[in-house]
Amino acid sequence: MKLEKKSVSDEIPTASMADITFLLIIFFMVTNTFSATRGLDFAIPKEDKSTPLVEREESVLISIHAGGAIEVDGRSMRADQILEYLKPKLERNATKPVIIRPDPDASYGDMVKVYDVLREGKNKGVEVRNINIPTQREVDQFWY
């Protein structure tokens, strides 16, 4: 009697592989949102009563008015002029505190823009090490 020989392939069937991988690709493409995952870090100083608070007289005060006008130590200037103004001051005292005081009605974008300018100073040879952005509560509590 002649037995019918069943031929068994010894290879993994790969015909459906492309379909499966395509499905996976579509899944990852749809669920993946290239969400914004980058930004500026903003270290919050420890709220420690023992550390002496920044004296306003020794520091540079950058006020941001509603509408985006910038005033540095009472002089109005553009954002790109700030580093120039700070350079000689920071050369004398590298840890000179720079305080950013945005007006409550100024936009968040303007505050971030100024903060970005100060942080970027490091790449332009004017490293601003001591940037303070006190909140309104702190200002009320300690300065007045």
Binding site: D41, E47, S107, Y108, Q136, R137, E138
Partner: peptide, 27 residues
């Protein structure tokens, strides 16, 4: 970016009071 700073200030203050050590400003 068009949020008045007042509101951001309050949130940062809340985070400070909660003793958060690092905040990242998404941009």
């Amino acid at each position: 970016r068009n949020v008045p700073y007042r509101e951001v200030d309050q949130v940062i203050d809340a985070l400070k009071q909660a003793k958060v050590t690092a905040v990242y400003l998404l941009s």
